[in-house]
């Protein structure tokens, strides 16, 4: 599947699969992007239930990770700095931890994570990742979602600074680009 088709399919798949996985009602109409923002719902490490819609209007970097994954940890260290530097410019990194809650919490504390981390029941990991275009279930895996809620880019493996500059900064607008 080409990347373009993958992204298009992802928008539809995500809404459907997530509604199955988390029993969130799939919206009957509206923009595809809106669907993702409204349907994606799950518990955060803070104990509250979150929807991606909470961060509507921001550039969301949805990062799937696991505590045992060393490249994920390295990437999280970078994400913490990026969230710190570009949070006020509309960047919202959202972690999705595919692991046991105590371990996720330990990582959050140890690495000083300054962005929300949502949790997915482990049994749903493969289905969830597949719904986001990651059939192999590999982590880290990152989906960039623009301010309208439309996924614009998928990245497999740790995201380096160059990719972040190419794929995320333009969505943040002039302030972020080239900084």
């Amino acid at each position: 599947m080409s990347e373009g088709k993958r992204l298009a399919a992802l928008i539809l798949l995500a809404a459907a699969a997530w509604s199955q996985a988390f029993a969130a009602p799939a919206p009957a109409s509206g923009e595809a992007g809106e669907k993702i923002l409204e349907t994606v719902e799950f518990k955060g490490l803070d104990g509250a239930v979150h929807r991606l819609a909470e961060w509507k209007g921001k550039v969301i970097v949805l990062n799937f990770w696991a505590s045992w994954c060393a490249p994920c940890q390295a990437e999280i260290r970078d994400f913490v700095q990026l969230q710190d530097a570009y949070g006020t410019k509309g960047l919202q990194i959202v972690g999705v931890g595919l692991d046991e809650e105590p371990k996720l919490k330990n990582v959050e504390r140890t690495l000083g994570m300054n962005y929300p981390v949502l949790m997915v029941p482990q049994v749903s990991n493969r289905r969830l990742l597949a719904a986001w275009g990651n059939e192999n279930g590999l982590v880290p895996y990152t989906v960039v979602i623009d301010r309208t809620g439309k996924p614009t880019y998928i990245h497999r493996g740790p995201m380096d600074e160059e990719v972040f500059r190419d794929q995320v900064f333009p969505l943040l607008g002039e302030e972020g680009a080239g900084t």
């Binding site: 994954c69 060393a70 940890q73 105590p102 330990n106 990582v107 140890t110 690495l111």
Partner: peptide, 13 residues
């Protein structure tokens, strides 16, 4: 232990 350390509780760390 670098990766594992990050996932440990405070006492284990």
């Amino acid at each position: 232990f670098a990766t594992q350390f990050v996932t440990m509780g405070e006492k284990e760390q």
